[in-house]
Every structure is written in C-alpha cells, then in structure tokens.
Design a protein around this nucleic acid. Structure first.
Lengths: 339, 339
DNA sequence: CTCCGAGAGCGAAACGTTTCGCTCGTTTTC
DNA sequence: GAAAACGAGCGAAACGTTTCGCTCTCGGAG
C-alpha cells in the first residue's frame, strides 16, 4: 500500500542504504538526489516512524506532566515548549495530573510506556519518586517552575526567583506605607507558593513588622478562589490596606471582589497582581504587578531538554533561575500619615 | 539491555507466540500464566511499542489541534479528552495553531508524520483542506465545537447548539424589557461566534427591534478584549442596558470594566455571561449565564473517536449536538417602564 | 475403542528502517 | 605516475513485535 524505502530504491535503481542516508540528511550525488526526490514525490513516500523508532529507539516525542490545565501560566509554558520542540521535530504528549499524586505517578508511567525521549514536569508531589525509574531509563527530565529538592544536582531545572521578587514586592508596599498586607497564594504545599510566602514573611521580618496569619490566604490558584479569599480578607477585623495576589487567576478574582465591593484601587486598597502584562496595561488604574518571563521559561526548558536529548545525556543538574520583575503601575497608593 | 519477549520465552521455556498472545490478553494455561508473570516481573519487561507499532500500524496516540491554549474552554476539552483516552491507553499529542491557518496545516502534517491513530480538531481555517489527506490515510477525525461545513456527512462532529441558546438568551433579555443589548463575540469568522451572533440577530428580528451594529463587539475571546470592548460599548451614544458576553474570558473582562466604571449590575447594566458556573455562583449578584456542557463535549468526542479507531472506520458523519442552557442568576434587571 | 474437535502452543516470516563493513572509482599528494 | 585518501554506494543483518498455518494433547461423543 504505502510506499517504503524499498520502493524508492527500486524506482531510482539505488541501494536501500543510500536512500536511508538521504532521508537522514546525508550527502548523495546531485543526480541521485534529484532522482530520489522525484521518486519520493511520485510515490508520496514518508518515513515510517515505527520502523525508524525500532532501530533508533527514539520516538521524537516528549512527555509533559502538568498539575492542571486550567491556568494561563501552565498553558503558556506548554505553548512555548510546543513551539520550540515542534520546530525540532518533537511532539509533546500532554498529561494532566489533576493535582493528584497518584495520577501523577500514573501519568509518568504512561509516558514511559509511550517511549518518550524526554520529560517536562511541573510537579504535584514533593518527591515524585517515580522519576527515579525515568532516570534509570536514561530519559532526561527537566523540572519546571517547582523545584524537586531531592533531585537537585541530578535533573535540570528551570525556575523563577520567587522568594526575592516576593520580598521585594512586599518591601515596595511597606515603603509605600503599608503594613497590613494581604497575600493570596495557591496552597501551602506548592513550592512556588511557599517561596512567595517566605519572601513575604522575610520582608515583614526585616522591617520588624508583625504578621497576622489571617492575612495569608490560600486561594487554589483560581479566579474563584481569589475572589472568595479577597472577600474574606476584607472582612477581617484588622482591615488590610494592600493586597498581593500571586498568580493571574487570583489577581482577577481579587479585582472582581474589590470592584464589586466598591472598594477603589488604590485609594482604599492597593493591589499588586501577577502575570499577564497585557491586561494590566489596559486597566485603569494601570495595575502594578509581578511579571514572570513566561515565554523564556518555556523556551529555556525546551532548549535544555533538546540539548540533553541530542547528546543523550540524562541531565547534569543545571539550574536556570529566571528573574521576575516588579512592574510599576498605579494601583499602589503612597500612604503618608501612616502610624 | 532491556528485556524482550524472547527473554521471557527463554525464561519460561515457552514459545514467542505464546508470550505475545498473553501480552495481548489471550488465554494461556494457568501455570504458564504464572510463569510468564513471574518472568515479566523479574526481567522488568515491557512491550516495545515501536516494534508493536511496526507490525500493527497503530501508535495508540491521537492528535489534538487547537487554535490557542489560553482559553478555559479549550483546555477543559483537552483535559476531558485526555482523561478518557488515557484510560484506554491512548496518548494525546497537542498542537497549538496560534489561530494561524498555515500553522494549522503544518500542525496536521506534523501529526500525520507522527502516525497518530486519530485526530481532534477545533478548526482555525474554514476549509482545513489538509484534512483530506488525513482522511485519505484512513485516519478518523472528530471535529469539535466548530463545524467544518464541507465535511458534513464525512467526519464526525461534536457541537453545541449555539444559535438557539443565543437566541433564547437574547429573548430572555428582551422579555426583561431590554432592547439595547451589547454582544461580545470572539471574531466574525469563527463558527461559534457567528452562530451566537446569528441567534442574537434572530431574536431582535423576531421581536421587530432594530439592531445597532455598534452593539456587536469582537473581543478576541480574551479578558483583555472583553474589558476593552465593554468600555467601548459603554461610551456609545445609544447606551446599552444589557450585555451578553459569549465566553468565559470575555465575561471576566466585561465584569472588570463594568465594576471599574462603578456601573452596578444589574441596576444600571444587566449582564449575562458564559461558562464556568463555579465563579458565577460565588459572585454577588449571582451571575446569569449560558452554561455549556464542557465535560460532555470532551468526553463525547473522545468516545466517538475511540469507537472509530476501534472499528477502523474513518467516520460516518455522525453529529452530536449538545445543548447549552441558560442558568438564571440575579444579574439581569426587569425593566418595567421601558419606553 | 476410535475419532473428532477444541485449545494450547509453536516456528518462521513478515513489518520498514538503520548501520556496519565492504567495494569501487575518483581525486589528491608527494 | 603511483600510492593514499576519500566519497559514494551497496548488501545484509539486525531491531522486537504480530500472526499465519501448523502440530500436539486431551476429553468426550458415538
């Protein structure tokens, strides 16, 4: 039915090995090249990836393990990873763990069976034990966004400097006279959330300002969570004067809640958001926010993995730390007569 | 290195064919079954999917072609599709076309090379000519959410009844005394947007109410677009009294814009949103919205494709049309003294 | 007691590549 | 001008499955 290399060899009068060589970018005589190309065109030949894989043991496919797909940050990373990899002939097999540790393990096992050449993971569980199996199979892994402590120095990692930027952001609020600052984080277990929270705490500590634990709200990384937590924060006895939301969805939720309550930004409550500069710029007042280099995260991770796969290394413990930046808008009020 | 069937055969003293039979769910004698399982365990054997694929010509992988990943509707579908397919041993190869027709074609060609067993597509271009090649290769295609007219009766399709629900929604607004109704759609080219817009027009027509073209705003399916378009609508000379946003992101954008302007819902402007009942329920006032059966879309599409792949059919032109429903909240005001 | 059929197991031939170790002819080098 | 070096092409042996057409065994029907 479908044409094979043998057919091309027959048609051109060349040997099988020569066709194979051509198909893999090798040099053949000009006249043979033309003949081969003509035959390919005529027979509509394409390499059979199964046979190729059987010989080379590469699928030209990588796995992506993500906690949940309902989140702009995650999907932006996927988009960028996909773009870079596809350009290099790699497809991405996406799996969603639904933030469940068991499903995470299942997903990775599944990808292993599918013979992926490499793996990206934004981890759900702390240890991700199953990754040991992956590494034993010589499959390179790039850990993205959430560090897996026990694998430091073993797998490659791409992270954002969350601690410093969070600290700096809170410092910025403190410098503007705020001491009652709400914080919206995803959960207390997630690496990035913890880092951001630690930065928050550190800023308070350095300024010798006491923290109220109620100011720290876990909002599940969702719009809804941000909305509800913000409402809760507004009801606290010690009313906050500023709010820092640590992802895009929670930022939207906070905005909705504040607006709905008729609380003006920044006059009554100052707000600092996260990600998505486009929206922030369009808004009035222009939103001050922490901007992560989302595109770069995906692209760096992709390039790192590509390199490992090309060289058939499993990873060298290289860690790329990217900086997020605080982009000043007009959503933070300078409080003068603070007491 | 890695164990093969031959090793299992050797270890158990059985023939290769018997092991293969076992691996594919065939019956073997109890004592052999035990021996095989022990050997598999001991040698840590797994089937080599490349070799299997070479023989069977199936990759147990399907392609997913999506216009853009930054959209809850799209990602929810992927999530559901992935869940169902993975349970059946299929992986999903996700490609993002970035709403570009050329990239859409490229993506499909790419998936073809990757030897996917089936394809889901939420189409970017109107014709998607390249699908002819896919079908010629006997690969079943399920068209999701956006009908491809020329393939009616050829590929299977899963759609939402957009026209009726949009008409009904607008009728609902009209019944509540609104005649100046803004509409946020994604673009004028997209199938779903057109259907929703047609429903909107039809409702006006049936009620003999004139439409102002300026009320129809294209907002690119994004929060930002919804936000900006809503602001624009609020500035029109003929001020709208109601707004219908036709996806989740644009709904959020509209909410932001309305709240920011201090326009109370529903007293000054009534709002009907789209998708994501969770947020809608949490909000005050509870948002009236059109709810699409997102989970069902993904699951139906997945089941449909699974069936085709199992039976090695390429599709029979079956169309599943799911109903969206109007869920009443408190974000629409009944205008009494309309004139 | 014989015969038959079902069930289990087997051997070997594919599937379509890549790659190793050759040969052969042409070009370069001293 | 001979030897060496090089580039191009080739044949054949893998890679690890599935599957076709067998054989063999055993139990039950007649």
């Amino acid at each position: 039915m479908k044409a094979t290399m043998k057919d091309i060899a027959q048609k051109t009068g060349l040997g099988l090995a020569t066709i194979s060589k051509y198909m893999n970018g090798g040099h053949v005589l000009e006249k043979n090249r033309i003949a081969i190309e003509a035959a390919i065109e005529e027979l509509d030949y394409t390499v059979n990836e199964f046979a190729r894989g059987l010989k080379t043991n590469r699928s030209k496919t990588v796995g992506v393990v993500i906690p949940q797909l309902n989140n702009i940050f995650m999907t932006s990373i996927i988009t960028n990873v996909e773009e870079v990899l596809r350009r290099h002939g790699y497809g991405i097999l996406v799996t969603d763990t639904g933030k469940d540790e068991e499903r995470e393990e299942e997903a990775i096992r599944f990808l292993l069976r599918k013979k992926v050449d490499g793996l990206f993971i934004i981890a759900t569980s702390k240890e991700v034990k199953i990754l040991d199996v992956v590494l034993k199979n010589q499959i390179p892994v790039v850990v993205v966004d959430r560090k897996i402590e026990r694998l430091e120095g073993i797998t490659d990692t791409v992270l954002v400097e969350n601690f410093q930027v969070a600290k700096k952001t809170v410092q910025y609020l403190i410098d503007h006279g705020h001491t009652k600052i709400g914080l919206l984080i995803g959960s207390r277990e997630t690496y990035t959330s913890r880092r951001r929270m630690d930065g928050y705490r550190e800023a308070f500590k350095e300024n010798h300002i006491p923290i109220q634990e109620e100011w720290i709200a876990t909002a599940d990384f969702t719009v809804q969570g941000g909305y509800e937590s913000t409402k809760r924060l507004l009801k606290e006895k010690e009313p906050i004067t500023a709010l820092f939301a640590t992802n895009y969805e929670m930022t939207l939720g906070a905005l909705l809640a504040l607006n709905e309550r008729g609380i003006s930004i920044p006059e009554q409550v100052s707000l600092i958001g996260f990600d998505n500069p486009d929206l922030a710029k369009a808004m009035r007042p222009k939103l001050t926010l922490v901007s992560q280099p989302i595109e770069e995260i995906g692209k760096s991770a992709a390039k790192l993995l590509l390199e490992r796969m090309e060289l058939r290394e499993t990873g060298k413990g290289k860690t790329i730390v990217l900086n997020a930046s605080l982009e000043e808008g007009a959503s933070v009020l300078k409080r003068i007569n603070e007491k």
